[in-house]
Computed example of a mutant assay.
Amino acid sequence: MRSYGQYCGLARSLEVVGDRWNLLIVRQLLIAPARYRDLIDGLPGIATNLLADRLRDLETSGVIERRLASAGSVVEYALTPWGAELRRPIESLIRWSTPLMLRGPEGDSFRPEWLALAVPALLDTRVEVRPSAAIGLEIGGPPLQLRSTPSGFAVGPHDGRALDATVRADPACILGLAAGALTLSDARALGLVEIDGDESVVRTVLAA
């Protein structure tokens, strides 16, 4: 492991997770434990040999672990309890990134599963009143759902339960609404979003 040679918590943290791709690997594993092939698919642009090196380094450092998946003898990667503590700093970086996200994807890759971490991170610090709500998100691809409870928000595949409303928009619009950088009224006026169902529920969550 490369060392900065500094007795500083930030320096020592960066020695573990500061290399290129490391935090994105952690992002994928915060969404869910994953097999090697799942990580390749979820990290567009990473070379297979580089992923293998990064996984080995993170495992050696105690951030991730290998284990048998519940279905048979397939090996999957998961965060250790210590590795899972990276959720809060990663969510803080997602919130910090809002000015960088305003210009849109500009041709960059996007996977809907990334909203599972980003949208709750953006909403959790803005929405003070959290009524029970279920909002479908149609962003192109398999439908997602945003559920809110008094304890927090979660985004994942639609599980078939009834929805209060459905929002159709591109990912940049959803992120802008969740961050508070785009108002729902402006998004409607610009034709960036369509809403079916109870719009008041959408406003309670996304227009706080």
Rank of each mutant, 00 (worst) to 15 (best):
G156I: 11
L163A: 02
P157D: 15
L182N: 11
G140P: 10
G140D: 13
F153Y: 10
T149F: 06
H158C: 10
A169T: 01
P157G: 08
S151D: 15
G160R: 07
I174Q: 01
D164N: 13
L177T: 06
A154M: 11
A154P: 00
D159I: 10
L175C: 04
S148Y: 04
G140L: 03
P142W: 08
G140W: 10
L144K: 10
A181R: 09
G156K: 13
L144C: 09
T183I: 02
G152E: 05
C173S: 10
T149L: 11
L163P: 04
L175I: 09
R168W: 12
A165R: 05
A172W: 09
G160Y: 10
H158T: 11
V155K: 04
P157Q: 12
P142D: 15
V155S: 09
H158G: 08
A154V: 14
D170K: 06
V167P: 03
T183H: 05
D164Y: 06
G141Y: 12
F153W: 04
A169N: 04
V155Q: 07
L163T: 01
A165E: 07
A169R: 05
G152D: 03
L163V: 03
P157E: 12
R147V: 15
R161A: 13
S148P: 12
G141M: 08
A179N: 00
